[in-house]
C-alpha cells in the first residue's frame, strides 16, 4: 500500500517537474482553460445572484380574494379568521370596497369618471400573502380559496413570477450550452498538449516499451499531467470569477447607493467552488486519456 502510494507520488513529482520545466507554455494553457471555464462559471454566478435578488424583492406573490357584493360583516369576520388560521397563509389584509375605490381614484387619475358613478362597483376584498412555495402550490391554494363561501373570485398575482422563472430557465439553459461547448474546448486543449508531449517523449516511450513497461505505466504520467493541468485551470477560473466579482461589487456599491439599497454579488459557494475544481480535473483527465488512447498505440518499437 505505502509502496504503491510512493510510486504514484513519484510519478506526480516527475509530472510537476515536467510542468515546471515548460512553465510559460504551461501557464498559457492553464490561462486558456481558466478563461474557458470562467465564462460559464461567471454566468452561473450571476444567475444565482439574480435568483437571490428575485426572492428578496418579490417577497411572496399575493392572492386577491373578491367577496360577493351581498356579503355581510359577519361573513367577513368569519372569513378573516378562517384565512388567518390557514396553514399555507402568512398574512391577510382586508380591503373595504370604499378603500379600494379611493385607491383606484388616486392611482389612475380617473377620479372625475369614478366620481360620476351612481354606486361603488367594487367589492370588498382580502389580500392574502401565502407562505413561500412553488408556482404549482400557489395555484392550488388559489383554487382552494376560491371555493370558500361568499368568495366570488380569487386572483393569483404571480404572472410576473412565472415570466421571471421562465427567463431564469432560459439563462440556465444558456449556461449549460456554454459550459458544454467550453468543456469540449478544455478537452481539446488537453488532448493537444498531451499529443505534443507524447511526440516529444517518443524515444522514452519506445525504450520503456522495450524494457517491459506496461501500458498503464506509460499512460500514468500523461493522465496525471492532464488532471493536474485541469486542476490548475480550474483554480485559474475560480480566481478570474472571484476577482471579476470583487471589481463588479465595487461599482455595484455606488450604483446601489443611488437607489438607496444595499446589494452585493455573492461569491461562489464552497460547494460550487469544489464542483468547479472537480469538474475541471475530470475534464483534463478525460482529454489526456483520449489523447493517450489515440496516440500511444501508434508508437511501437522497431
Amino acid at each position: 500500500m505505502t509502496r504503491a502510494f510512493a510510486l504514484h507520488l513519484g510519478v506526480l513529482r516527475a509530472v510537476l517537474r515536467r510542468m515546471f520545466a515548460s512553465r510559460l507554455a504551461g501557464f498559457l494553457n492553464i490561462l486558456a482553460i481558466g478563461i474557458a471555464l470562467s465564462l460559464p462559471a461567471g454566468m452561473y454566478l450571476l444567475l444565482q445572484n439574480a435568483q437571490g435578488l428575485v426572492a428578496q424583492f418579490s417577497g411572496t406573490p399575493q392572492i386577491s380574494l373578491f367577496l360577493e357584493m351581498n356579503a355581510k360583516a359577519e361573513d367577513v369576520d368569519r372569513l378573516h379568521k378562517q384565512l388567518a388560521q390557514h396553514p399555507a397563509v402568512a398574512g391577510v389584509e382586508f380591503v373595504t370596497r370604499a378603500q379600494a375605490l379611493e385607491q383606484l381614484k388616486q392611482s389612475t387619475g380617473l377620479s372625475d369618471l369614478i366620481g360620476g358613478l351612481q354606486q361603488n362597483p367594487l367589492p370588498d376584498a382580502f389580500v392574502v400573502h401565502p407562505k413561500p412555495g412553488d408556482a404549482q402550490a400557489l395555484d392550488m391554494l388559489r383554487g382552494e380559496l376560491a371555493k370558500l363561501p361568499r368568495i366570488s373570485e380569487a386572483q393569483l398575482d404571480s404572472a410576473w413570477a412565472y415570466k421571471l422563472e421562465a427567463l431564469l430557465r432560459f439563462g440556465r439553459m444558456g449556461v449549460l450550452i456554454l459550459a458544454s461547448l467550453l468543456s469540449l474546448a478544455l478537452i481539446a486543449v488537453t488532448f493537444n498538449t498531451i499529443r505534443l508531449q507524447i511526440l516529444t517523449q517518443r524515444d522514452e516511450i519506445e525504450v520503456a516499451k522495450l524494457i517491459g513497461a506496461t501500458d498503464g505505466f506509460i499512460r500514468r504520467p500523461f493522465l496525471y499531467f492532464g488532471a493536474a493541468q485541469g486542476l490548475l485551470g480550474g483554480i485559474m477560473a475560480w480566481l478570474i470569477v472571484t476577482a471579476s466579482l470583487l471589481l463588479l461589487n465595487g461599482q455595484l456599491g455606488a450604483l446601489a447607493q443611488l437607489y438607496a439599497s444595499r446589494f452585493v454579488l455573492h461569491p461562489l459557494s464552497l460547494g460550487d467552488s469544489l464542483s468547479l475544481l472537480l469538474f475541471s480535473v475530470y475534464l483534463g483527465w478525460l482529454g489526456a486519456w483520449l489523447s493517450v488512447a489515440r496516440h500511444l498505440s501508434q508508437i511501437e518499437p522497431r
Binding site: 516499451k209 522495450l210 524494457i211 505505466f217
Partner: peptide, 12 residues
C-alpha cells in the same frame, strides 16, 4: 498485455 512481462525477463 503479456509482452511487458516477457521483456522484463530479457535484457537487451
Amino acid at each position: 498485455g503479456a509482452l511487458p512481462y516477457l521483456r522484463r525477463n530479457i535484457g537487451i
